[in-house]
Nucleic acid binder design. Sequence first.
DNA 1: GTCTATAGGGGGATAGAC
DNA 2: GTCTATCCCCCTATAGAC
Lengths: 207, 207
Amino acid sequence: MSPKEKIEISTEEKIKITARQVFLKKGFAATRTRDIAEEAGINLALLNYYFRSKAKLFEIIMTETLSSFVGSIQKVLNNEETTLEEKISQLAASYIDLLKSEPEIPTFLVTEIRNNPKELKSKFPLGQKILQSRFYEQYQEAYQQGKVKEAHPLHFMLNLIGLIVFPFVAKPLLMEVSEVGQEQFETVMEERKRLIPLWLKAMMETE
Amino acid sequence: MSPKEKIEISTEEKIKITARQVFLKKGFAATRTRDIAEEAGINLALLNYYFRSKAKLFEIIMTETLSSFVGSIQKVLNNEETTLEEKISQLAASYIDLLKSEPEIPTFLVTEIRNNPKELKSKFPLGQKILQSRFYEQYQEAYQQGKVKEAHPLHFMLNLIGLIVFPFVAKPLLMEVSEVGQEQFETVMEERKRLIPLWLKAMMETE
DNA sequence: GTCTATAGGGGGATAGAC
DNA sequence: GTCTATCCCCCTATAGAC
């Protein structure tokens, strides 16, 4: 490749990128391969040439999306240099940034897992990874030192993730049903980067 | 109708009940009218005889589900006899009870609104109803008295609803990805009836 | 590799008998 | 009202030319 050469995206890559957008937006069932082909500016036959079937293509997208999602979080969870509080702040900030750039991810995952709950666990032992993380260790330490009041860590995890993710799940409904617009939503999410760690601290000290 | 007569469900009603279950579980796009007919123990043609089309049937289900959902909440929001704190407790308790009996509702609403964001607003001016509620009035009073620290009420609403609803949205993923089972989930949700009001109070006093 | 044309099947809807 | 049989469209997938 000469240095002058324009960076061209291969047809295969173009299909994948487009497919990702469409699948994220509409979900597997509601997506037609024609939508993808059209939007990618290629012929429908090419999609099958490269990926054999809609299902295969979808599985690739799904796996890659989950991998990068899980991977990005694991780095934070297992950082040996940071305290529990710092990890919470980092999680809130990086999660929110990620979801601001791809707000459809939570709804996408929720609907696709509903329709196909199988095989996820074996591929992504997420629960296990959390339980084995430095993050979880630090949480347990805090609990033993009496800094955390509520016994069941499930509450803590639900609260941490829910406070971050739920607004994105509720966003379409919220924007439809109220006067909240895109700009205001983003402002509020920026504020939450700061607020969520404070809230969680206050919640953890409550019984 | 003689008093002795068994209470028989009309075919129309039977279709509607079944359709509701299937739609809630799989969503509009992934549901086949054949699924509904089969599970209702009737013939496919009957479905169209009574409801003309899949879309019409779906719209009826959707409207009724939303109506009862919204209605049940409005009663709590506009109760003149209760304080803000009591309303929060009641909302948590009755919402959680409702969702324990029909846990698919949140995911259902989220996915269907994504696929069809139109017309919801006009039919259910939910945002407006909240802003005009006694509940919201009391929240504003609390804010003016300095009991609530954070300026934007959107945070408060997102937190209130998110703490209640998010676990149900995350439930399929949670149960797939961890060792949490149905029983444990229900126990945790019962605890949250008590905890959410406490947490919210603590959060509201945090800046 | 990329296209056109078409096969093949599934699913929503209807005609018409009972 | 309820059924069987069937239509027909839409969508996925493939065959085959270029």
